[in-house]
Design a protein around this nucleic acid. Structure first.
Lengths: 188, 188
DNA sequence: CTTGAAGATCTAGCAACGCTAGGTTATATA
DNA sequence: TATATAACCTAGCGTTGCTAGATCTTCAAG
């Protein structure tokens, strides 16, 4: 009776094709180009099929965002692993964070600025979000003091830098200096 | 021949009524409720009239955003003026910034996350944006070091804190601790 | 005062959007 | 082979941003 399993697998694969298409289109033409009609055409099904996978368009964006949190966690952990000391780790993680935001702007937009209903610090918080936060906390932790507060502040700084860089409101050329300043503030 | 002036004044006033209506609706029901039809109804003109004032809907959002930069500049200057020393000034300005974002979420959204084409550090940068940046720089400046870099970093941190608070991703209860940490990092 | 050009405004409509009701086809079970 | 169920599609509703073309108003020249 593996027939139900097969159906389940096919369904999951189709769902993945939806988010993959959304991500691809968004990265190439912006989220405005990601319409339900376009996605339906892309996966070669009619529109109502999408609504059997996701409650609405925002839920599709949210699904992509969750994928993004998985990706950024890996990027941050990799950056942390290849570091020699604490200062180096903080700097590498910060630069990796900014590089991620710059390298996948549409993905980052889904994660932070588009209206997905993703929450933190709540019962139904997705494990992917928690894991990404922990990846940051692991680098901040050795400072002593309140780790949660320090991690939140570090994260906010990185997010702000990423956003203001993306919107062209701070000079991209001064990135290294700003990161150095942030790391100095955290260590001093 | 004050007739042309009168027409100009009336036009300017009508334009202001558009942005005022947009701001009001956005603050009350979110930017999704701010449609061109709705605004037209609000000012009691037909839709095409709006397009004689603004190129498209985004330009209306951008106009509101510019108003927002004027407002936040005033808020920051006021906070700075009522401070006794540098540490106090930094803390007051930071808290005022976060309070502004929290108090006018739709306005702040227009300023930072909605797709207006507002740029900084470019020839056509609006004076309102520059002034708001300078209001921050004035508090950061006495630190020594590269003022521009320090201001950009301070601003990014505040923006990140505002955004992550708004989206419920960091605990609002720990706001004061985070601000204290930021100020400490800047002074140390 | 009339007339005609210029400007201001509106009506009506296009294409595209998110989303859904209801009918149709395919599939598994009896 | 018949039937119930699941899967899927067609067609359409209401709304959106935006615009072409018609209409009405204003003002200067004859």
């Amino acid at each position: 009776m593996g027939i139900a399993e097969r159906k389940g697998r096919q369904r999951a694969e189709r769902e993945h094709r939806i988010t993959a298409a959304a991500r691809l289109i968004a990265e190439g033409e912006g989220w405005r180009a990601v319409t339900v009609r376009r996605l339906a055409e892309e996966i070669e099904y009619s529109q109502p099929v999408l609504y059997s996978h996701f409650e609405n368009r925002d839920a599709i964006v949210a699904a992509v965002a969750v994928e993004g949190f998985r990706d950024i966690m890996i990027a941050l952990q990799t950056a942390a692993r290849g570091s020699i000391d604490r200062r180096d780790a903080l700097e590498n993680v910060a630069l990796a964070y900014l590089a991620f935001a710059r390298g996948h702007p549409a993905l980052y937009e889904a994660m932070f600025t588009l209206p997905t209903g993703l929450r933190f610090a709540e019962p139904e918080t997705k494990p992917e979000l928690k894991a990404a936060f922990d990846a940051l906390a692991a680098v901040v932790a050795p400072a002593g003091g309140d780790v949660a507060v320090a991690t939140e502040t570090f994260w906010a700084t990185l997010h702000g830098l990423a956003e203001l860089e993306r919107s062209g409101r701070i000079r991209c050329g001064a990135r290294a200096e700003r990161v150095a300043l942030v790391v100095h503030g955290l260590l001093g």
